[in-house]
Computed example of a mutant assay.
Amino acid sequence: MLPWVRLGAVETEDGVELRLMRRGTEFSIMLGANELMNSRLSGSEEALATLATAALAGRPQVKMLIGGLGMGFTLRAALKALDDGARVTVAELMPAVVEWARGPMAEVFGGCLDDPRVTVRQEDVGMVIRAAARSWDAILLDVDNGPEGLTRQGNDALYSAAGLGATWQALRPGGVFTVWSSTPDPAFTRRLKKAGFTVTEVPTRANGKKRGARHMIWVARK
């Protein structure tokens, strides 16, 4: 078996090492001892986008905000489903993740960062959400392991009552908010409903073929 090779590493603001690993054609992004994502397992990240775009079917010139670049699976799935008039903004806090996307992982991204519909902002997605009311048709969050933050303590605010209120305000009428999580979280479902969203919980599989780890996606409609 081929050995894992470390291609890059950076320390997060919480003092934990985030590193990019490669084994043959397989990539992995690790946070400490935890694997955050793997290039072989894209199914649930793609579902985050396909569920959002399906909920917006027929809406012209969609403005979408994606929180978290990851390995680009959500972005690529969104671009495949959206028309030429759509605009997709990706907010990624870690500059190293963007550098890896344009460097060692360029083959995984397949040029999607150069799509004219795409803007990448190296910024906290929470700040982007709070910047303006009724700005987005869709907000997609995949910035952590889910509502129980793992990568960054500051992410917890996104899933709090105040954070969900800000997301509600940032969405246009009829907008959709989808959230990726490694596990179910009934308390988060209740917070979404209390914030005014109509909520559907959608279990998904990591590889998109009814196998692999079980993940959860919330589809919340304004």
Results as ranks from 00 to 15, higher is better:
residue 9 A to N: 07
residue 10 V to G: 06
residue 11 E to D: 13
residue 12 T to F: 07
residue 13 E to Y: 04
residue 19 R to S: 15
residue 23 R to Q: 15
residue 30 M to S: 11
residue 32 G to M: 12
residue 35 E to P: 08
residue 42 S to Q: 10
residue 46 E to C: 12
residue 46 E to L: 06
residue 46 E to P: 06
residue 49 A to H: 04
residue 51 L to T: 01
residue 64 M to V: 15
residue 65 L to A: 09
residue 66 I to P: 04
residue 68 G to N: 11
residue 72 G to T: 02
residue 76 R to F: 10
residue 78 A to W: 02
residue 79 L to R: 09
residue 81 A to K: 10
residue 83 D to L: 12
residue 86 A to I: 07
residue 96 A to L: 03
residue 100 W to Q: 03
residue 104 P to M: 11
residue 107 E to Q: 12
residue 110 G to T: 12
residue 113 L to K: 02
residue 113 L to H: 05
residue 113 L to D: 05
residue 131 A to Y: 07
residue 136 W to R: 07
residue 137 D to R: 07
residue 150 L to S: 06
residue 151 T to K: 00
residue 154 G to M: 08
residue 155 N to F: 09
residue 155 N to P: 09
residue 157 A to T: 12
residue 158 L to I: 03
residue 159 Y to R: 07
residue 161 A to M: 04
residue 165 G to V: 03
residue 170 A to Y: 11
residue 170 A to M: 09
residue 176 V to G: 02
residue 178 T to L: 03
residue 180 W to L: 02
residue 185 D to N: 15
residue 186 P to D: 13
residue 191 R to P: 08
residue 195 A to P: 05
residue 200 T to I: 00
residue 201 E to Y: 02
residue 202 V to L: 03
residue 203 P to I: 01
residue 203 P to L: 09
residue 205 R to E: 10
residue 210 K to V: 08
residue 211 R to E: 13
residue 212 G to L: 05
residue 213 A to M: 08
residue 214 R to A: 13
residue 215 H to V: 00
residue 215 H to N: 15
residue 219 V to K: 11
residue 219 V to S: 03
